[in-house]
């Protein structure tokens, strides 16, 4: 049953940056885009088991810290080798200064 989870405050994440959020044994990455919007994806790279939270956000791309693979974090689309498999994305909403993500 999908549910909305309170992940963090809006000002916990700098613009054009991300943080790691762990919940119920799963790890997520929450992004703050340069336009001020929020997005959420699975927290691990699809190439190897590496946390994306140490990576670099450039515009709408997240670059993995291990081999510099890139994803569009809005859609999860794999954009640069060595990543080939898309990243899972999750719905996000902002309420009263809090970022909520919908997890399965």
């Amino acid at each position: 049953m999908p549910q909305w989870i309170d992940a963090c405050a809006t000002d916990d994440i700098d613009e054009e940056d991300l943080i790691r959020f762990d919940h119920a044994g799963a790890t997520y990455a929450i992004y703050h885009s340069p336009e001020g919007d929020f997005f959420a994806t699975s927290g691990m790279c699809t190439h190897e088991a590496v946390h994306l939270c140490d990576g670099l956000v450039m515009g709408h791309l997240i670059e993995c810290p291990k081999h510099n693979g890139q994803f569009d974090y809005r859609t999860g689309e794999a954009k640069r080798a060595p990543v080939c498999v898309n990243l899972k994305t999750f719905p996000v909403k902002v309420e009263a200064g809090r970022v909520l993500i919908e997890v399965p």
Binding site: H47, E48, K66, H67, A81, P82
Partner: peptide
């Protein structure tokens, strides 16, 4: 070599 180098880093 793009892939061999990824492995070198892993």
């Amino acid at each position: 070599w793009r892939w061999s180098h990824a492995r070198h880093h892993t």
